[in-house]
Simulated assay, not measured.
Amino acid sequence: MITKIMDVSEEPINMEYIREASEILKSGGLVAFPTETVYGLGGDATDKEASRKIYAAKGRPSDNPLIVHIAKFSQLEDITENLPKTAKLLADAFWPGPLTMVCNKNQVIPYETTGGLDTVAVRMPNNPVALALIEESGCMIAAPSANTSGRPSPTKASHVYEDLSGKIEAILDGGAVDIGLESTIVDLTEDVVTILRPGFINMDMLREVVGEVRMDPGIVYNDKGTTSGAKPKAPGMRYKHYAPKGDLTIISGEEDTVVGKINQLTREALKEGKKVGIIATSETADRYPEGEVLVIGNRSDESSIAHNLYDILRRFDELSVDLIYSESFATPKMGQAIMNRLLKAAGQKTIEV
């Protein structure tokens, strides 16, 4: 299979490409497309075979549900039952945007799409290409991130092509995404809204809309990279994700001691003939005299850290580093989301100094 790349990065959107991609979806094929978070790998959410193709192309565990992308709130009502009032409140506040709601499903969305669960995860992306594709195709689109399962999520079309070329029919290239981390996932099937995956929309933002909100104990990380030990409710959070090829370790603590520890570990590794990568911020990058130093962003603009995380991990793959040392990023608004992704990429490997 030859994967066609269609450039839809310019305004106005090339609707010929949108129509061509829509026909692929309607015929049961797969199309990768940009959202505001990461690139998604899309298929018709109501088509069992299309969902099976998504799992196969990614090498994704079949019990890890796919998120259904919609363009109108009425579509959420069409595929769920016992929809709580909080769904409309959250949709009015955050849709289109990086919020996924888990609701009780009806028979419209097959179990092949929901990973065998009686719930369905749904969001409305805030990206004109994604919305145009949903509307033009007439499909609700099941779409996990468009990468090989376990690899860093794709924030550029080139990342998608690297992982999925020859496995899917087409890629809609909309340029680099805005946010760079997957959506916040909230469970609406319990009495209290529960965050199953942290993201751009944080707990404080949710509480302003619905009142009481709690975090799934299985995903609460402290600055040492440990959790309560509880099993995450969301199946996808149980797997190692976002991992670069190099062995990643996170160093946490006060800035001076973190920098000193990373420099020490780097010197020791270089003596052993290892190639070392270092994830630093603009504030600290010049304090690392050795190793391949990449700047992820700056601490005064935490969105820059989130935006660049996956691209940085993939760039280290291109540099063929053996080891990667990263500073910890306990930032005020997105710190939980950033560290959630970074710790999963490191397989929870941390050093406290």
Rank of each mutant, 00 (worst) to 15 (best):
Cys139Asp: 06
Cys139Pro: 13
Met140Pro: 15
Met140Ile: 15
Ile141Ala: 09
Ala143Gln: 15
Pro144Tyr: 14
Ser145Asn: 01
Ala146Glu: 13
Ala146Gln: 14
Asn147Ala: 12
Ser149Cys: 15
Ser149Leu: 07
Gly150Ile: 07
Arg151Pro: 01
Pro154Lys: 06
Thr155Glu: 00
Lys156Ile: 07
Lys156Pro: 07
Lys156Gln: 00
Lys156Val: 07
Ala157His: 09
Ser158Tyr: 05
His159Thr: 04
His159Met: 13
His159Ala: 09
Val160Gly: 04
Tyr161Gly: 13
Glu162Trp: 09
Asp163Ser: 03
Asp163Cys: 01
Leu164Arg: 10
Leu164Asn: 13
Leu164Phe: 04
Ser165Val: 07
Gly166Trp: 06
Gly166Lys: 00
Gly166Asn: 12
Lys167Glu: 00
Lys167Gly: 06
Ile168Phe: 01
Glu169Ala: 04
Glu169Ser: 08
Glu169Asp: 03
Ala170Phe: 08
Ile171Asn: 10
Ile171Tyr: 09
Asp173Ala: 05
Gly174Asp: 05
Gly174Tyr: 12
Ala176Lys: 14
Ala176Tyr: 11
Ala176Ser: 11
Val177Ser: 00
Asp178His: 13
Asp178Met: 05
Asp178Pro: 08
Ile179Val: 10
Gly180Gln: 11
Gly180Ile: 10
Ser183Asp: 08
Ser183Gly: 09
Thr184His: 11
Ile185Gly: 05
Ile185Gln: 01
Ile185Lys: 10
Ile185Ser: 12
Asp187Ile: 11
Asp187Asn: 09
Asp187Phe: 05
Leu188Phe: 03
Thr189Gly: 00
Thr189Ala: 05
Thr189Arg: 00
Thr189Glu: 03
Glu190Pro: 02
Asp191Glu: 06
Asp191Ser: 12
Val192Trp: 03
Val192Tyr: 08
Thr194Glu: 01
Leu196Pro: 14
Arg197Phe: 02
Arg197Tyr: 06
Arg197Lys: 02
Arg197Ala: 00
Arg197Trp: 04
Pro198Ile: 00
Pro198Arg: 12
Pro198Asp: 12
Gly199Arg: 04
Phe200Ser: 14
Phe200Trp: 01
Phe200Ile: 13
Phe200Ala: 01
Ile201Lys: 08
Ile201Cys: 07
Met203Glu: 01
Asp204Ile: 00
Asp204Cys: 08
Met205Ile: 03
Met205Tyr: 11
Met205Leu: 02
Met205Ala: 15
Arg207Ala: 02
Arg207Trp: 06
Arg207Pro: 04
Glu208Leu: 05
Val209Gln: 11
Val210Asn: 02
Gly211Asp: 05
Gly211Arg: 05
Glu212Met: 08
Val213His: 04
Val213Asp: 10
